[in-house]
Amino acid sequence: MIEVNSLTKRFGHKVAVDNLSFSVKKGEVLGFLGPNGAGKSTTMRMVTGFLPVTEGSIEIGGVSMIAKPMAAKKKIGYLPESAPLYNDMTVKGFLKFCASMRGLGGSSRKDAVEKAIETCFLQSVAHQSIETLSKGYRHRTCLAQSLLHDPEVLVLDEPTDGLDPNQKREVRKLIRNLGKEKAILFSTHILEEVHEVCTRAVIVDQGTIVADGTPEELTKQGGGSLYDLFHKVTTSEITAA
């Protein structure tokens, strides 16, 4: 579903993503781990078509994001890191707008909005102005817009960031369930989430993949601790310096 080959992104002389390759199949939840500034969000922004790539290829469900961005974007649902929303709209109004942008209309739009509200537990705030929402509800509203068109691929940039423990649990459960039918790429700083949600994980550091495997394989590589592996593969440069 997601095929990324030799992906590179340079901002001037700075290499943010360096020759990165990975794939996510249907029914897979790929955890994207790495320290701040590792290139996770930049990679996700390229996969979703927001940032143009410097080199490499991206295919979403067999459609090239570079050659046919409009067709490829239709197959993706995306939750950006900061969960951006239009503050002057209500939750329902915003979801209706996103559904229309996704080409849904009439009763299919109404059904999609109702389903997304229900899936993300937004019933109590559906008619509330987004400006007045708490961070947890804002995050869930943005997650809801990514589900509206029932996409084959979901790209979620830190979907549990800023949520309370109960909300975190609900969102993890939701991702696990959605992962049975879709290909999901999601980034996180919370290593426990890898065991709870992911079928596979990669650790990214300085724009390259430094570890790849199932949660069990990665834990084994770290001598029984994913934290130790993460520490070992992402701090080598700091130690060397």
Binding site: G49, K73, P80, P84, L85, Y86
Partner: peptide, 14 residues
């Protein structure tokens, strides 16, 4: 400022 440009840039709209 609000970051919605990222949302807009990933929707199927030119």
């Amino acid at each position: 400022r609000s970051g919605t440009i990222e949302l807009l840039g990933t929707l199927p709209v030119t």
